[in-house]
Design a protein around this nucleic acid. Structure first.
Length: 427
RNA sequence: CGGGGAGUAGCGCAGCCUGGUAGCGCAUCUGUUUUGGGAACAGAGGGUCGCAGGUUCAAAUCCUGUCUCCCCGACCA
């Protein structure tokens, strides 16, 4: 994409209302725009990040043969009345009435809907286990939305649901998702800590949340200090050697241990095993060798739209965002510092075409702007690598590859760039 | 929902106390000069001061109501 064609409304100043650094940078870099309290539009640059995250999640789910689908955001209240959550979910649920006075709601989650779906289609235990997921907007009418997309009312979530024949099988499924989640967050370049959690409104008896450590986070977790060392081979079994839980879980458990520390964090994922809570309330029974059984269910969520904010909170400096390569909106930005020079223009266009042909997601700053503006905005939007073409190229055919994170600038030739560096830039 | 704050140009703000018909910075447009880290100069455009009502000769300013947004707290991915 050429920057002259790309909608990138950056700002030097930002409303004083935005308090935390990720919210400020997301507004300044033109990633998001508030429409009303807790409800945001994702502008092209922000949407690209969201799409990178989505692709990682979709790819990893596909590796485990988990079916992707799409359920509607609007649900009938009938199924929520049947699960007895229509009242208990309370004010957080956005209720809507259609022209026929039918009571609808904007779904905060989909356990009810997926249970009814399972009941309609699953005839035999031989079809189990069955895993389904979708990526869809949710609405929870938060008492106080804040921090931009970090605590929004409308948000994008990946939610998966599992059906198993019994508890033992469901626990294997739970472990599969647990490891899948570690893998997904790892692929996003995020250090994540799984913590034992209470299961809250969803219900059930086994639940973990996935947190990243962050001083400005709204959550608190209690962890064994050994867990803070980065783990080489992260898996369910590795983490089961250490204590980690949400502060709420810790307080209820009454454990005492001097090796435990309280840390601020951001919750990015939550998994639950809730058994037959919903299958029984919907009288969802299937035949099995041991007679009629209620399928054992679980659900597995990732707060997609919270991830860019969490990532920025952890990866930024005074100049702006520093995206991890894996979820950066672009792999590389080519910056033409000499727009008036035919030599530079032609060379930039040539590099732009080469990169496109090599499947590099590339942004080309071809604008007739002052170099200060170009440098500042490139630093602000945080693309990991900047290819600078200007004076040094005109004089000595040297192009400069700058690392956004370290600030290091490599002076290289076209040949070196194409042969040695292009593949490092591609994800 | 309780407590606090704010709505004035696309964005950030001043003006309000003490009423006299709106200003600054950034951005935008035109021109000239500049050009390796958010340029300089000259000129220009852009506002029913959140909305409604009231007081007054006169309201951004005072009064009443209302809507919206933000912050602190209780709730949550």
């Amino acid at each position: 994409m050429k920057l002259t064609n790309f909608f990138l409304p950056t700002k030097k100043e930002v409303p004083s209302e935005a308090k935390i650094v990720s919210h400020r940078l997301m507004l300044r870099a033109g990633l998001i725009r508030m429409e009303t309290s807790g409800i945001y539009s994702w502008l092209p640059l922000g949407y690209k990040v969201l799409e990178k995250i989505r692709h990682i999640i979709e790819f990893q789910h596909l590796q485990k043969n988990i079916n992707q689908m799409l359920m509607p955001t609007i649900q009938s209240s009938d199924i929520w009345i049947q699960s007895r959550r229509y009242d208990s979910y309370g004010e957080e649920m956005l209720r809507i009435t259609d022209r026929n006075q039918k009571k609808l709601l904007y779904g905060p989650t989909n356990e009810e809907m997926i249970t009814v779906l399972g009941k309609d289609y699953i005839q035999s235990y031989k079809e189990l286990p069955l895993y389904l997921y979708h990526i869809q907007n949710k609405f929870r009418d938060e008492i106080r939305p804040r921090f931009g997309v970090m605590r929004a009312r409308e948000f994008l979530m990946k939610d998966a649901y599992s059906f198993d024949i019994d508890k033992k099988s469901a626990e294997k499924t739970y472990e599969l998702f647990f490891n899948l989640y570690l893998n997904i967050f790892n692929k996003m370049g995020l250090n994540i800590i799984p913590v034992r959690a209470l299961s809250g409104e969803i219900g059930g008896d086994l639940s973990h949340e996935f947190h990243c450590l962050c001083e400005t986070g709204e959550s608190e977790i209690v962890v064994d200090t050994n867990i803070l060392e980065p783990q080489k081979s992260e898996s369910f079994s590795t983490f089961s050697n250490y204590y980690s839980s949400t502060i709420e879980y810790f307080e209820k458990s009454g454990i005492e241990n001097s090796k435990l520390k309280v840390k601020k964090s951001i919750e990015l994922g939550h998994i639950f095993l809730f058994g037959d809570k919903y299958s029984s309330s919907f009288d969802f029974k299937i035949n099995s060798p041991s007679g009629l059984i209620f399928p054992y269910m679980g659900s597995y969520g990732i707060g997609l739209s919270r991830i860019p904010a969490a990532c920025i909170e952890i990866n930024h400096d005074e100049k702006g965002i520093i995206w991890p390569q894996q979820i950066s909106p672009f792999d590389l930005i080519i910056i033409n510092l000499r727009v008036k020079s035919e030599l530079c223009v032609n060379f930039c266009n040539e590099m732009y075409d080469v990169c496109k042909n090599q499947n590099i997601d590339i942004l080309f700053d071809d604008r007739d702007e002052r170099i200060g503006v170009k440098f500042s905005e490139a630093d602000l939007i945080g693309i990991p690598f900047q290819l600078l073409i200007g004076k040094r190229f005109e004089e000595d055919s040297v192009i400069e590859l700058k690392n956004r994170k370290t600030g290091d600038v490599l002076e290289i030739t076209e040949k070196e760039f194409l042969e040695n560096y292009l593949k490092k830039i591609r994800q």
